[in-house]
Design a protein around this nucleic acid. Structure first.
Lengths: 335, 335
DNA sequence: GGCGTCTCTGTTAACGCTAACAAAAATTGG
DNA sequence: CCAATTTTTGTTAGCGTTAACAGAGACGCC
């Protein structure tokens, strides 16, 4: 099938120039007479010519495609990030190829990266929030532009990350400022750096206030696990403030508290993380921390492009500060 | 940068064969001696050779990439669909390139498709839930394999779609079966086919029961718009049952009803659509309709692949039936 | 034992583009 | 107005792969 479209030579013939001149026009080469340029443009338009990316990639050794490796692109965070990356990349003239993986283990990541490499992507963004992903990245060819997002801060790889620690600290501090004597935490899976960072920030805030952090309750990002933790929290009369590692956990907690008749925020205050669009419509509206996914996407793409252009594989690092969004799920404790 | 990796000829030299034999091994051509095959395999492994997709795409005229055009990949539906497509495609050895667009107007869609075509994708999946997208698709080159998802049922383009009508009918019928005298509807944006289908199904169920459908209240998929509609519904004492076009609208409605002290499901029953993972943790747990995104992805990919292989551009059509998920947000009306 | 047939392997020519160089045309300066 | 320069255009040679064909053995059969 596929009656192949016109090629550069067809355009050249129609415009009465050599194919190389067409190439020059296409690539914005300076030394082309204005009149020629227009003639070529007209021919391109008339034929509906579309440059062949494969041929270009073959000869330049590099396509205008950026590969993204991510795990669960259904989760709000990854999905937002992916969408933002795609937008930003498109503005720079790059397409985005997704290689999502079921598990973030060494083998899966490597396989996904391999797939991208075999397509000769210009660079790769790995959304690598867990430990095992880091290992995979260490064995990667060093000559491929690479940026990790929300990955391991301790590895010598270019990294863009939401400042989880600062966000969690702000959330916890917000609760302390409201007058709470301590803050409990429902965490994400502990093999995610995001979780670790948020636990850290929460702990830091408590320690700075001279408080002894209670044991964090481990969740798995899902509302279901939040619900389970919430059932336990509801039974503990001393609990007046909870910080959850994301908004969906918070939703589960809210639901459990509601079921147990513990009113939010009158008896217990809750703060989430992510600011999913629905958070403002939880019962009650959820105070949360909003990471700026657009900023993360912009930063990582910029970092990647500078690697692509310069050819140097610097180990930069950039941190995006999140913002606290205060809503009605926080109030002073009853005395 | 990028010390280019080994090429086929390097493998050939090491294995002591011609590059063509390497190509044959790679493509699983039958007439290769077992011994030779092994030698080539060994050489490939030793050099860490990776076939160059660009070169292959150039000569075959077709890459192992499928382009997906979608609008808002942050929404739960599109995100799930995209993830499922990616998974399925990966199993078939295809990569997925995303071309998300800000608006689903004619120009944006065409531009996204153009981008994909210039990369010589093997086929294109367009998640085209609005009218204007259909127009764009009509002007597309006919020789490129194309499948639309949740698009216009009236256009002669291969289409896979969730059976919105059946889902909405089931939701509405479920409420009628519970004893409600009528069912109100908070719809999605009326230029989405999904919305239109859901309105249709709702209306059909009411008409079949000999009821006069009340005017649907237009939302925009967001919890915010659901909240606004919910505020109105809360003030109408005759309302006992509401079907919303998605779960986020339902969340907004639930919140508004809660604020007005109208208890769900005791005073008002609510049914949503989508079964987002959090729906089971709304207050109360939301009865909803679950579309099978995996099935949609599988069907569309299969349809696309058969077009790619056969070369024929048939105008098939496939409908995926959604399932009602009963939870606690529905109860008989108080009398 | 020679000849057709099959199986395996090699050779050559594209695919459509860019890079490097070569040639032609236009421009400048004396 | 001619040589020296600069600008513009053309020519050629790959990039790494597959496809088409050609050649070399191995094998069977009369």
């Amino acid at each position: 099938m596929a009656v192949h479209g016109p090629a550069m030579t067809d355009v050249a013939r129609l415009a009465g120039v050599s194919h190389q001149t067409v190439s020059r026009v296409l690539n914005g080469h300076p030394n082309v007479r204005e009149q020629t340029r227009l003639r070529v443009r007209a021919a391109i338009a008339e034929l509906g010519y579309r440059p062949n990316g494969a041929a270009r990639a073959l000869v330049t050794g590099r396509s205008q495609v950026i590969g993204v490796v991510a795990q669960n692109t259904t989760l709000y965070g990854p999905a937002s990030l992916l969408a933002a990356l795609e937008q930003t990349a498109a503005e720079e003239g790059f397409a985005v190829s997704v290689g999502s993986v079921r598990n973030l283990d060494h083998r899966s990541i490597s396989a996904a990266v391999e797939r991208h490499l075999s397509h000769r992507v210009a660079g790769i963004v790995v959304i690598a929030p867990v430990e095992s992903a880091g290992e995979a990245l260490e064995r990667l060819p060093k000559d491929v532009p690479l940026v990790t997002v929300d990955g391991d801060p301790s590895r010598p790889v270019p990294l863009v990350t939401v400042d989880q620690v600062a966000g969690a600290r702000a959330a916890t501090q917000h609760l302390l400022d409201a007058g709470h004597r301590t803050v409990w935490h429902v965490s994400g899976p502990t093999d995610w750096f995001d979780s670790v960072g948020r636990i850290d920030g929460w702990r830091q805030a408590l320690l700075a206030a001279g408080l002894d952090p209670p044991p964090p309750m481990p969740g798995d990002w899902s509302a279901a696990s939040g619900y389970r933790c919430g059932q336990m929290l509801a039974r503990m009369p001393e609990v007046t403030a909870v910080f959850t590692a994301n908004d969906h956990l918070a939703l589960g907690v809210l639901r459990a508290l509601h079921e147990f008749g513990r009113r939010v925020p009158h008896e217990i205050s809750v703060v989430g993380f992510d600011d999913v669009p629905e958070a403002a419509y939880f019962i009650p509206p959820l105070t949360t921390v909003r990471p700026d996914f657009d900023a993360v996407a912009r930063a990582s793409l910029q970092m990647l492009l500078s690697q692509i252009e310069s050819g140097t594989g610097g180990a930069l690092r950039q941190t995006i500060a999140p913002a606290l969004v205060a809503r009605e799920s926080v109030a002073p404790p009853r005395r």
